[in-house]
Design a protein around this nucleic acid. Structure first.
Lengths: 219, 219
DNA sequence: ACAAAAGTGTTGCTGTTACACCCATGG
DNA sequence: CCATGGGTGTAACAGCAACACTTTTGT
């Protein structure tokens, strides 16, 4: 396939979730050569009768068993040597999901969650792609750009849990009192009335986001 | 070309600039069928030996005669009916440029600047693409995300000029005194010592951005 | 009782908002 | 001298940053 206008295009789906205050990605272990035994971002070659969005949704369904979620486009990668044989254009999508929903399904040994700063050995240029996509995502999370922080907490959470995630993504510590005050005083969160104990220590209050206040809110 | 994994990919380059307080896009008039006489976003089919970035840079050079500029990737479009004959995947890039540099070159009658809210008759789905890309860009400009506001003012400007552009993109008015104070008190701009007269009225002070302060600054 | 984790209040500072009059130039 | 557009000050308010001790639970 020399010098033509026909291109192989693949969709890569970065499935992300918050877990224990960390940002994690769901990867699968490759079962065939090349890169057999390495981990890769769930992916699918794009057929010319399929849109990128359909393709990304298909990957999401195949990989997680869930049929809907927050999925949106991220960056495209087109270096000539991405693949060993021919140039394959990768168009990445991000799915932000609820880890507990996925973990409730029977866990496949060849799929697993990894902290984005503790990645396993990855095939192709997928480590680079994860790093590039995540570094673009970080500031969106920490400023709640496109309501990105909200998407990572679809269900109830404690403020320390939110803060741990926030600090992990921001990569620097925040004063707990100020963090608490900000969300509570500005009514960005609503007290659900429930508490949750995590090992020893005082139980935390479960909040959920007040979407009326958080939509479009820059933090 | 039924049901294959080979795809036609094109790069579209949205060349943008601020001018007279408006956000404008540089378009070219199509000289051949289909859509002859309609305006289109400058574009180029992607060869499988070329990266998307190279392709975007080539379009920039061909269209403007300038050989470097701020170019970055935006969204990809993959609807099956974008083109009349076959599915063509469009990967868009944005170039932010200095309109005066381009206007100094001899003006081609088949290329022209248009306000993004006064577009001419466009071919293909290009009107839709412009609207989608611009609506993603707007909030980046008005919050200076990725230093986007700075990129639109590479050279000197008056504060009213900056404010007009800002209000045009934000689509709502801002108090002039507060706008002025914000930029001057926080040392976000530096007085160049020059003034500029625009028709009648008191001359405006020419400022330039204080990059040390503006880099990463969220406004 | 001790260790672990969550909750909370005050003060000073910085930036935002709302608001109206004066100044420099061209015609 | 009039029209046009640019420059400016003040006061109330909101949010941010810096700071340490108390409360609730498990062991």
């Amino acid at each position: 396939m020399e010098n033509s206008n026909y291109n192989i295009v693949e969709t890569l789906l970065l499935i992300l979730a918050s877990d224990e205050g960390k940002l994690k990605i769901y990867l699968e272990k490759k079962k065939t050569e090349p890169y057999k035994g390495y981990w890769v971002i769930p992916n699918n070659i794009l057929n010319n009768q399929t849109t990128l969005e359909e393709n990304a949704n298909n990957i999401y369904l195949q990989t997680t068993g869930l049929d809907k979620g927050t999925i949106f486009q991220s960056k495209a990668f087109s270096a000539l040597d991405r693949d060993l044989n021919q140039r394959v254009i990768a168009i990445t999508y991000i799915a932000i999901t609820d880890k507990t929903l996925i973990d409730m399904k029977k866990q496949d040994k060849d799929k697993s969650w990894f902290q984005i700063d503790e990645l396993p050995k990855l095939g192709y240029d997928h480590e680079n792609i994860i790093n590039e996509v995540i570094s673009e995502l970080r500031p969106k999370i920490t400023t709640n750009y496109d309501d990105m922080l909200v998407k990572f907490f679809p269900s109830d959470f404690t403020l320390p849990e939110l803060q741990n995630f926030y600090e992990y993504v921001l990569n620097k510590p925040i004063d707990r009192r100020n963090f608490h005050k900000k969300f509570v005083n500005q009514d960005l969160v609503v007290d659900t009335g429930f508490k949750v104990t995590k090992g020893s220590g005082r139980p935390g209050t479960l909040y959920r986001f007040n979407l009326d206040k958080m939509k479009g809110k820059r933090i």
